[in-house]
Simulated assay, not measured.
Amino acid sequence: MAPSRYDSIYKSSLLAGKVVLVTGGGTGIGRCIAHELASLSCTVVIAARRLSPLLKTQEEIGAAGYEGRCDVLHPLDIRDHEQCKKAIQDVVRKWGRLDGLVNNAGGQFPSPAEKISPKGWRSVVDLNLTGTFFMAQAAYEGYMKENGGSIVNVIVDMWNGWYWVAHSAAARAGVYNLTRTLAQEWTPHSGVRINCVAPGAIIGAGQSNYPPSVQKKVIESFSYQNPSGRLGTESEVSSAIVFLLTPGASYINGACINVDGGQSIRQGPIFDTVFSPDSKLPIYHGFGSPSPDDDLGMGPGFRELFGRMAAIKPPGDAEKGKSNL
């Protein structure tokens, strides 16, 4: 049984004729972006190191019957400079253009800073910082320098440091500065725009990458420790990324959109004020109500939390029990 069709907030013809490459496009936020782009009549090319998630997402998109389509590029290790160059060449050779690049691939593992080995440090920095640069450089040199385009780099909420993830926090901060630098170097000569999106704590497949002890803390306490009182959804991140790929964002360059519920401005409890788990902010989830066939890779605890988030009604909503999906 195929998952629900993606119901984007944007008009279905928005990206007709465009080609966008999404790294890490087989799972989590990347999968969600791929669905939304295809629903907007875009040709989306998804790439990653593992083939099976890419094929699964491609199959989902094909079954959904969108106006757009999904192509798979494999393998792609963004830490390999030659693979990055070849990936761009392959996309341009097959589709004749490259209008957008979403640098979504990345990852990390939790560890106290003093316990991070040299190998672990280099692995995470290479993946999140060096790989992002290699892909951006390949897209620029391989097509966008002469034709323009849009690059969106996905980072994280690392503005006040990132406890137990020093390697990734340092790398993502580097990507933010890299984005601002490239916007100054490249845009005046090419018309390429380069921006960032910084997700906060997002509920979805990405949480399954962390140990059960970390997942438990997220569910029980961290899930509401921001001014919005809840976690974000993959769709809420995807909407911001897609916007930056559209003509509506034509004068946004070298910027970062924080999709974090206000987490980046959080200062913790002030006097007797604490954030409440009783959120008043409804969620947006492009797939509608999750079914067993579209569970976003969540474990039982996160599915229960997602159900509570999906039941949030805006203040004053007279229709009690009405879903916000």
Rank of each mutant, 00 (worst) to 15 (best):
K216R: 14
F243P: 10
P188G: 07
G200H: 11
N160W: 00
A166N: 00
Y176E: 06
N258D: 11
A166I: 07
G191L: 12
G174Y: 03
G204E: 13
G174N: 07
R230F: 12
L178T: 07
A169L: 05
G262V: 02
Y251E: 06
Q184H: 11
N253Q: 03
A183H: 06
L231C: 05
P211A: 15
Y224W: 12
K216T: 14
W164M: 10
S221D: 12
G161Q: 00
S250G: 11
V175N: 04
V192S: 06
W186V: 13
S264R: 02
E220S: 15
V237L: 09
Q184G: 05
W186A: 09
L245D: 07
C256Y: 09
I252D: 12
P188Y: 01
C256H: 09
T233E: 06
S213A: 12
A171I: 12
P199I: 13
S250K: 09
G262F: 08
S235E: 11
L245T: 04
S223M: 04
I203D: 08
V214D: 11
N160Q: 07
N209K: 15
E234Y: 10
Q184Y: 08
E185K: 13
I202F: 13
G161S: 01
Q225R: 01
P247T: 10
N160A: 01
Y251Q: 08
V214H: 13
E236K: 01
G200V: 15
S239W: 13
A173P: 09
Y251V: 07
